[in-house]
Design a protein around this nucleic acid. Structure first.
Lengths: 325, 325
DNA sequence: TGTTTTTCAGAAATCGTTTCATGAATTTTT
DNA sequence: AAAAATTCATGAAACGATTTCTGAAAAACA
């Protein structure tokens, strides 16, 4: 027996097609008609066909979400929050993990277009991404142009905050570590904020920024260069992500340096893996829920043209075991 | 200017509608016609409308994936791998995070049905889930019935392996810890395997299994009960997940017990957060890629009826810093 | 060259909805 | 009580593709 259609429901209920459509879509209809249709739907176990619906009315309640992967805790949490915000508005999520593959990512944009999604939320590092023509797009952490809204946390402020906290806790010589020298995106401003705070406070600092392809050992080498008689030149290190911070902490342990006594470390992201039990590395916490909610608000809103071209959401400091305060 | 349709392409190319359809779907057509259509598509920047296509031919190349959340590293990695396997077969993924909410999860099944997905991959703990009528479904870690294929890792074998490894490393009194006493799913067999190995080896063991709602502190209490003169009754602990293992490790540290000298700990899952740098807790590693690939293979295959009702994939032991070997 | 196949583009029907024009039934107005 | 206005279910047309059928042109055969 084939799946029942609206026509079947109409026949079963003894009403016209249009009436069934109205009931299904919550458009007011005479009481007795409504009841009859509802009963018929129940009896036939009818379920609307989204493809027919999507074809006729162009609203699909589908949003495409594109992120590099779900392995990174930050991306995973972000997608999790986006999903929750979308569900609250009755939207569904088409998820694409790009694996940092620009070509595939571009393909996904086309796919999203032909899938007739109502909007795209995209976290992309692709400098040459061709944006879709008729689909509203909100970007995370990456500024495209003035008419493409970008949502990110206050990376500049976060960089400042990290430097300020380190100095506040007694550090007098700071280092900033980052992978990915060529990326042009919002998280880059973490460095700018860090530098600006160091200069305002008159504290010396060193930047070590390596290319994407470079192996992690470049940081080890860097640290060893600055190690004299078992003492590191720096007493405070700001790592651009928690992930990097964790690796650095391992390296510092291997170098037999005590954290936070000899050197204090701050990371960035603040996504905890196993609940708060594991509050280990001090970090600048990104407001992931707010970022997700803001993206969803914007992308599902009618007039995206009037949206701001950049929204920066406030970050907070979370003390872990790697700083004195 | 509205989006171009196949009709527009046909007019532009000076051919009939059906011809365009054939070219788009790779059905052989006269050389010169094909070229003209391809050029017209390029010129108009035409993109096929999946909703019209999905309506007419019922294949949609959409698979719904349902997991509790993306916060848990295991789920996140699983979805990541599923996404990759799907992409390789030109399928798209509709993702639903259920948050362990049975009602919402049921709603998602209905949504998936009406979204006309070609299949569903589902990791559910809902004992009363009503399965969709006409949509193939593959379950992960949860056996529904003989005609619903279930894919999981070899949980029983993993439980055995954990016990065997602990004993091999000198443990003579083991404990098994788990949250979620009432769940009936494949991961429960971790306990069975553990028990069976203990008995085969003639090693005494204790099980501590607490309810879902119970606070974590129940485990702390349990451990303290078994602490006499700074010495724990157990010298080997098998935790049902890495997540639990990490919490237990924190507790053991608070109790001033040394790991692995005083007590050895093994977890389960083996999904690493920051690459292999953080290989901290010894664990039984689930073959996440294989689980994902198997699910995708099955759900996209034509005759799901002939599929096995249970597929168990082999696990491996990964030594971390919490065991002696 | 005349007849039979074969090939392949074009026309038309169809998928399951939404929406709009239509007109019957009801209510309001005078 | 008759005319005008309002309400609201009805049913056809449209959305943009696929697919079957049709028939003209080309190829094969005698």
């Amino acid at each position: 027996m084939p799946k029942p259609t609206m026509k079947d429901v109409a026949r079963e209920a003894g009403v016209a097609l249009g009436t069934v459509s109205k009931v299904v879509n919550g458009i007011p209809v005479g009481e007795e008609y409504r009841v009859r249709v509802e009963e018929a739907i129940e009896r036939l176990n009818y379920r609307i066909n989204s493809y027919a619906k999507g074809l006729r009315s162009s609203k699909t309640y589908l949003i495409a979400v594109m992120v590099p992967n779900l392995i990174s805790p930050f991306f995973a949490k972000l997608v999790n929050c986006i999903n929750r915000s979308l569900a609250a508005r009755k939207y569904r999520m088409l998820l694409f993990a790009t694996d940092y593959d620009n070509e595939q990512e571009q393909e996904y944009v086309y796919l999203a277009e032909q899938q007739k999604v109502d909007g795209i939320i995209c976290l992309s590092y692709n400098p040459n991404l061709i944006l879709p023509a008729g689909v509203p797009l909100v970007s995370i952490d990456r500024y495209f142009s003035t008419n493409v809204p970008c949502v990110s946390s206050d990376n500049y402020g976060g960089g400042r905050l990290a430097a300020e906290k380190l100095v506040e806790n007694g550090c007098r010589n700071l280092a900033f570590l980052r992978i990915g020298s060529k990326l042009v995106n919002e998280p880059n401003k973490r460095k700018d904020g860090f530098v600006s705070a160091c200069e305002a406070l008159g504290v010396p600092y060193t930047l070590k920024i390596i290319d994407d392809g470079t192996p992690y050992s470049a940081f080890e080498d860097f640290l060893r260069e600055h190690l004299h008689d078992g003492k590191l030149d720096f007493d405070g290190i700001f790592c651009v992500t928690d992930s990097l911070a964790h690796q650095i902490l391992n390296t510092l342990r291997d170098m037999e340096l005590r954290v936070p006594e000899d050197v204090q470390v701050i990371g960035f992201d603040g996504v905890r893996r196993f609940g708060d039990m594991e509050l280990y590395c001090s970090t600048i916490v990104q407001p992931v829920e707010d970022i997700a909610a803001t993206c969803v608000d914007m992308v599902t809103e009618k007039d995206l043209d009037k949206a701001p071209s950049l929204v920066c959401l406030p970050v907070t400091y979370a003390q872990g075991g790697t700083t004195k305060g």
